[in-house]
Amino acid sequence: MSTLLGRQGRQTAMVACFLLPSLAVFLLYRILPLGWNVWLSFQSWSPLHPAQFIGLDNYDEMLRDDDVFWTALRNTLVFMSSAPIAIVLALGIALLVNSDLRGAAIYRTIVFLSYPLMTVAVAIIWRWMYDERGGLINFVLRRLGLVDKPLAFLQSFDLAMPSVIAADVWQVLGFHMIILLTGLQSIPPHLYEAARVDGAPAWARFWRITVPMLRPSLFLCAVIGILNSFSSFDLVYVMTNGGPGHATELLITWIYKTGFGQSRFDYAAALTVAQFALLLVLTFLAHLASGGNAGERA
C-alpha cells in the first residue's frame, strides 16, 4: 500500500492514524456533545417530550428576556481577571524562588500545595474564612484594628465577587507558578551576563530579556487561566451558589441551574453555545496577542 501512495501519501496516512485515538476521544466527548447542544438550542425539548424546531426563540429569550444572562456574562468576564492576577502573582513568586535561595524547593512545594486540593474543599474552607463573625479574616482584621465592624464578604454585593476571585487565585497560584518557574529556569544565563555587562538596570533586564523569553509560558498560563475561570463551577456553586442575588452568578452556574435545576435543557443549550462562541472570540484574541501562532508556540 505504501508504494502506491508515495512518500507524501504515506506521511498523511501515518499522521492520520497517530491522531486518530486522541481525535476519537475529543469527537465523542467534546465535538459530538457540542453538536448536540447546538442542535438542541434550536429546539423546544424536555426529557419526556419530543423536540420541536423553534428556530431562534431560545436565543431571543436569552438576549432580550433574560437579564440574569447579561449579569452572568459580565460576572464571567470579571471572574476571568483571576487569570492575569494569578499569573502576575505567580511570576513574582517564581522570580523570588528562581534564585539560588536556600529552601527554594520547600517554598515551591508549599505554594503548589493548594492545586491538588478538591475544589469543593477549597470552597468550604474559604466560605468559613470569609464568615462575618466566626471567620478568620474578620478576626485578624478586627484584632489588627484595621476595621471596626466585621466585613460581610460573601453577603455584600460588591465584595462577593472579589472574594471568590481571591479564593480561585489561591488555588491556581501554584499551578501558574510552576509553569512560569520552568520558563524562567530555561532562560540561558549568558543573556543576563551580557545585559549586566552593558550596565542594564534590573528592570530593563526584566523587560528586555525575561518577559520576551517567557512569552510562550505566559500564553500557556493565559489559555489555561481563561479555561479555568469558565469552568470553575464547583468553587462558585459551593461557595456562594451565585449569590447574593446574582452577584457571583457565572455563565457555567447559570447553565447548570437552568439545565438541571429547572429541567430546561433547550435553554441551557443556547447558553452553552453562547459561552462557547464567547470563548472562541477570547482565544482568537489571545492568539493574536501572542504573536499570531499560538498553536505553534504554546
Binding site: 468550604i124 462575618e132 460581610a152 453577603q155 449569590g243 447574593p244
Partner: peptide
C-alpha cells in the same frame, strides 16, 4: 445576614 446567603452549614 447569613439567613439570606447561607444554605445549611
Amino acid at each position: 445576614k447569613i439567613s439570606w446567603t447561607g444554605r445549611w452549614v
